[in-house]
């Protein structure tokens, strides 16, 4: 009698880590301060989960997009919540809210991590698109030297090392978030994190497939922001 599982059985736990594809690095800097407690953090986590599924379902993005998530929280702490991972292996972390909003520290870490990753790409002969950083906050930075870091971010963007976008929820101080980027910040409509992350997934997928030096695709934000 034939084994009914024979035709479909695969070797478990095998991972395919082909690193030959051009990568599009994408960093999410997430404000997980105390004010995100409750529904906001719940919606943020739901959005991250949607991002995971959407990227994994996109056969191009899953192998080309790399994600890094940095969490700003606690007593001015910035930690890597998810280190560089291909989208196909990305598992959405469950974020918890508490503490302050050290966005400067977190953005500085994002710039450092991008430089290190670009060096790794170079050493491996992998080409890459310009990295993205998305700064998402419901408030404003609380670390003392955030303005210095914000200037550093704008300088990096002016030198075309990185593309930075700031997204704030209803009560976020967009004027301060705007100082981290040369692009205008966007206001999230309500708590539409899921819509935002689905847009992000589609956008980063488009960029990962785009020809070199293709224009950036940030104008059509769909229905997640207050126009």
């Amino acid at each position: 009698m034939a084994d009914t599982n024979l035709d479909n059985e695969m070797i478990p736990y095998v991972e395919f880590a082909d690193n030959a594809n051009e990568r599009t690095p994408c960093v999410l800097v997430l404000d997980c301060s105390g004010s995100m407690r409750g529904e906001p953090i719940k919606q943020l986590n739901a959005g991250l989960k949607a991002l995971e599924q959407e990227l994994k379902d996109d056969i191009d993005a899953s192998s080309r997009v790399q994600l890094l998530i940095i969490k700003a929280f606690g007593k001015d702490e910035a930690v890597v919540s998810t280190d560089w991972t291909d989208a196909m292996n990305f598992e959405a972390p469950v974020m918890e809210a508490g503490g302050l909003t050290p966005l400067g520290k977190a953005m500085d870490m994002a710039l450092d991590k991008i430089e290190a990753q670009k060096s790794l790409y170079d050493s491996c002969g992998i080409t890459s698109k310009r990295p993205w950083i998305f700064l998402i906050s419901d408030g404003e930075p609380t670390d003392y030297d955030w303005e210095i870091i914000a200037a550093k971010c704008r300088e990096a963007q002016n030198k075309k090392k990185v593309v930075i976008h700031a997204v704030g929820t209803k009560d976020a101080n967009l004027d301060k978030l705007a100082m981290f980027s040369t692009n205008s910040p966007k206001r999230l409509s309500g708590l539409r994190f899921t819509e935002f992350f689905l847009w992000l997934s589609r956008s980063v997928s488009c960029v990962s497939r785009a020809a070199p030096n293709a224009p950036e695709l940030f104008e059509d934000t769909g229905d997640w922001d207050d126009k």
Binding site: L6, E9, I11
Partner: peptide
Amino acid sequence: KASRALFNT
């Protein structure tokens, strides 16, 4: 079974 699983993988 081993070779089939390798092939499937």
